[in-house]
Amino acid sequence: MNTLKKQNKTIGLIPTMGNLHYGHISLVLSAQKYVDIIIVSIFVNPIQFDNEHDFKKYPQTFEKDCEILKKYNVDIIFFPTIHEMYPFGIKNEILIEISNLSNIIEGQSRPGHFQGVATIICKLFNLVQPQYAFFGEKDYQQLLIIKTIVIELNYMIKIISIPTIRSRNGLALSSRNNHLNSSEIKKAPYLYKIIQNTAEKIIKSKKNNISEIIKISKLKLLEKGFFIDIFNVYDAEKLQFLSKKSKEAIIIASAWLGKTRLIDNKKFFIR
């Protein structure tokens, strides 16, 4: 990396867990506008999973991923082993935690998840030393945590976020979509449709009756066959509940459809 920097090459990092889809490719296309050298990391991070079963069943398609990245002229694929990333073992690792963001909303539903994310991102930043790093907005809370890491730990890295990439029916692209059966694939887009409908109602309400609006939306999701984990509206800057000072809101949702946990969100301005 030092050699590249001595040549005045700008480096961009795209952290992934592999099983790539067009959402990842959109990050590559964005990186091409900013940097000379694009590095894509592929590492299924064990310490951000809720349990070992989920970790082991995560789809790994390294050869196919390499073919895709080669097609889009990615310069370097970084594919470390678990031992290389966690030399003292995953149970003896130093953990990074952003206390004000790691244990709320998604972090409350998945204890330890964001510690795992923050830790691996710091490791990747230290190893690659990019000037830019690229992330999707589908994992919004994760994005805020990473931006906070950059500020709090004084990384000289510019974080570039990319809007969520969706299929034609509105479903957010995700590696987890591979676990949906044919019936669930048809139902899955309703999550975002109901999120959109909820946002429109909150905008029209001018912050009135929000709890009732959310309640009705949850009932609609239940009727469609979703099991709701998270569905609420927050201040988009702080991820606290809306206040009179809130100007931009975000609906964050996670829901189970069969055995698959889907996440999505929508930001919008309010008065």
Score class of each variant (00 low, 15 high):
residue 66 C to D: 01
residue 47 I to M: 12
residue 16 T to L: 09
residue 159 I to G: 06
residue 119 T to A: 07
residue 123 K to C: 07
residue 246 S to C: 07
residue 220 K to R: 10
residue 270 I to L: 03
residue 172 A to H: 10
residue 228 I to T: 03
residue 174 S to C: 04
residue 110 R to I: 11
residue 253 A to G: 06
residue 224 K to I: 06
residue 174 S to Y: 01
residue 258 G to K: 01
residue 230 I to A: 02
residue 68 I to K: 05
residue 186 K to W: 00
residue 229 D to G: 08
residue 153 L to W: 13
residue 26 S to V: 10
residue 176 R to V: 01
residue 120 I to D: 04
residue 59 P to N: 05
residue 29 L to G: 00
residue 7 Q to N: 14
residue 207 K to W: 02
residue 45 N to Q: 08
residue 29 L to D: 09
residue 134 F to D: 07
residue 170 G to T: 02
residue 69 L to N: 07
residue 55 F to G: 05
residue 179 H to L: 12
residue 158 K to H: 15
residue 80 P to T: 08
residue 86 Y to R: 00
residue 53 H to T: 10
residue 95 L to N: 07
residue 66 C to M: 07
residue 226 F to C: 05
residue 82 I to A: 03
residue 79 F to K: 14
residue 24 H to Q: 12
residue 262 L to T: 02
residue 191 L to R: 00
residue 212 E to N: 12
residue 110 R to H: 10
residue 201 K to D: 08
residue 72 Y to T: 13
residue 209 N to D: 14
residue 225 G to P: 06
residue 156 M to C: 12
residue 143 L to C: 04
residue 156 M to T: 08
residue 141 Q to G: 09
residue 53 H to W: 10
residue 260 T to M: 02
residue 92 N to H: 14
residue 251 I to N: 00
residue 118 A to R: 04
residue 36 D to R: 07
residue 56 K to F: 13
residue 232 N to M: 03
residue 114 F to M: 06
residue 170 G to P: 06
residue 182 S to A: 09
residue 147 K to Y: 01
residue 187 K to T: 15
residue 6 K to M: 10
residue 158 K to I: 15
residue 37 I to M: 09
residue 157 I to D: 00
residue 29 L to R: 12
residue 100 N to C: 13
residue 57 K to M: 07
residue 54 D to F: 06
residue 147 K to Q: 15
residue 59 P to C: 03
residue 228 I to E: 06
residue 270 I to R: 02
residue 267 K to C: 10
residue 127 L to Q: 01
residue 231 F to M: 03
residue 99 S to D: 06
residue 201 K to F: 15
residue 260 T to E: 02
residue 75 D to R: 11
residue 226 F to Q: 03
residue 67 E to T: 14
residue 154 N to V: 12
residue 17 M to W: 13
residue 215 K to D: 15
residue 248 E to W: 07
residue 107 G to T: 09
residue 182 S to T: 06
residue 257 L to M: 08
residue 55 F to P: 05
residue 262 L to H: 01
residue 97 E to I: 15
residue 112 G to V: 11
residue 11 I to K: 09
residue 2 N to L: 14
residue 168 R to K: 12
residue 17 M to Y: 08
residue 89 G to T: 09
residue 109 S to K: 02
residue 120 I to E: 01
residue 35 V to W: 01
residue 178 N to D: 07
residue 87 P to C: 13
residue 264 D to P: 01
residue 84 E to T: 09
residue 141 Q to M: 08
residue 111 P to T: 11
residue 119 T to G: 08
residue 105 I to L: 13
residue 99 S to E: 11
residue 189 P to V: 07
residue 196 Q to P: 00
residue 245 K to V: 13
residue 62 F to E: 09
residue 131 Q to F: 09
residue 136 G to T: 10
residue 159 I to T: 11
residue 100 N to E: 14
residue 14 I to M: 02
residue 147 K to H: 03
residue 178 N to I: 10
residue 146 I to Y: 10
residue 23 G to V: 05
residue 6 K to L: 14
residue 5 K to H: 15
residue 105 I to R: 01
residue 93 E to T: 15
residue 121 I to D: 00
residue 34 Y to F: 15
residue 241 F to A: 02
residue 55 F to W: 11
residue 154 N to K: 11
residue 254 S to H: 00
residue 77 I to V: 13
residue 38 I to Y: 03
residue 154 N to P: 04
residue 128 V to A: 02
residue 162 I to L: 15
residue 163 P to W: 09
residue 268 F to A: 06
residue 96 I to F: 12
residue 143 L to W: 00
residue 133 A to H: 04
residue 261 R to V: 08
residue 51 N to E: 00
residue 210 I to N: 03
residue 230 I to K: 00
